[in-house]
Nucleic acid binder design. Structure first.
Lengths: 238, 238
DNA sequence: TATCCTACCGATTAATTAGTCAATTAACCC
DNA sequence: GGGTTAATTGACTAATTAATCGGTAGGATA
């Protein structure tokens, strides 16, 4: 989640400048840099709300805690986002936008079918492993039956660029006889996502049930390779 | 979830009998059958708490609501289970015990390797489809990082009977050359569980993202067949 | 330097809700 | 039928927390 805080950096007329009596120095507080920057403040709230909701869920997420960590008053949260629910929706939108951005970096065009499928598998696995808070947030949204997603025009408009990439690989592979024809790219995407998602989302109950390691780097690397094998095994011809 | 309420039925000295002035007929209330039966009451609380937590999560779950639906006072919940958290743990224990019971019904011994693998896949898929509330509960427990599971001796002791069944099928298959050797039964179980779990747990976000049907009987049947194919494709020799 | 806009705040409210106390009463046993 | 045990209750508390109201003040513009 490094792509966030796009409109940050100290620049423009809102930048902290000497001459104005900022930081009223009340008590031992670190006296945060306050800049009256709408976008910056909004983004800061979103970043912290993302953490809060991913950690504690929607009903568990606390607006007081978000305000405290963002060094603003709670009032401001309701000023920008008008309810906790809407804030959650905004957080979801941001999270999905970032995932979509990550997918742009996946270039399968130049690769042989097998290499492309393996790269796709590894990339998807790695993304989930690298963003457990995103995985948690999606789980939470599903617990709420996707109602925030359903009510957000932005979220519904975000089409997944990966699907068309997969479709092209499958077509190419089918044409050259390496991949069996008739595979639906969305189904394949679902399979791969299920495997990658589960490896993060259900780690705790699975590990507890089977005394099985899913968290060490070694275990992750092994599972990563297995998923890539599996995916290739299930699309290749014959 | 039919296996619950084992110790129910009207029998013994607690059974509703004439002669005693039960049902004080206050107002128009249906005057529920109250029997002062420890086990029955406990089980009723558990059943309703299961629904409540599966629906609303741990922090979202409301003990007042549970009490109201169980026709008891909230105080009684804390009398039997001493906190909301402990009640949640008890609910989890019950849910897993029932899943384990369901797995007992799976007999793979008599089947050919391919048939056994397909039956396993279909059985697992069907179980998840039939118990969406169980799936939700497991998701919720993972959001809480499996801490209730970790703290429950009973849950940790419940070993999965399915694993040894899978191991036997894999052995037999490897011996007769139908299945490639060296497959870990836990890994296979994880793969199958991931696919089956995702089809229920992530239905909402996936459907919203891809305008893809995962809920109709037709879509389920198709996915079921695909998962069985996939599983066989990934274990068979060659 | 007066004016206006708006980012921001302190205090409060109203509702919810986990958990408790001190009883009450149903059932069972002699 | 009196006594003991244990299931059950109603009323209460203390804490939390989403949301609101009536402001204040920073900064741009003229």
């Amino acid at each position: 989640m490094e792509a966030r805080r796009l409109a940050a950096a100290c620049e423009g007329p809102n930048c902290q400048m000497p001459g104005v009596k900022k930081q009223p120095a009340r008590g031992a507080k670190p006296a945060p840099i306050k800049r009256r920057d709408r976008e910056r403040t909004r983004q800061e709230i979103l970043d912290i709300a993302f953490e809060e909701f991913a950690e504690n869920g929607l009903s568990g997420g606390n607006t007081d805690a978000i305000a405290a960590r963002a060094n603003i008053t709670k009032r401001l949260i309701f000023y920008y986002f008008n309810s906790k629910e809407d804030l959650f929706t905004a957080v979801l939108e941001m999270a999905y936008a970032e995932m979509r951005a990550a997918e742009e970096g996946l270039h399968l065009e130049a690769l042989e079918p097998e290499a492309a499928i393996r790269r796709l598998a590894e990339f998807t696995f790695d993304f989930h492993q690298a963003h457990p808070q995103f995985v948690r947030l999606v789980s939470i949204e599903n617990i709420h039956r996707g109602r925030h997603m359903a009510s957000s025009r932005r979220l519904k408009e975000m089409t997944q660029p990966s699907i068309s990439q997969i479709a092209k690989v499958l077509e190419r592979g089918a044409a050259c006889g390496a991949i069996r024809p008739g595979i639906d790219p969305i189904e394949l995407h679902m399979t791969l996502n299920a495997l990658s998602f589960f490896a993060v989302a259900n780690r705790h109950t699975f590990e507890a049930q089977f005394a099985w390691d899913m968290s060490s780097p070694k275990a992750k690397a092994q599972r990563r390779a297995e998923i890539a094998d599996l995916l290739w095994r299930c699309v290749r011809k014959d």
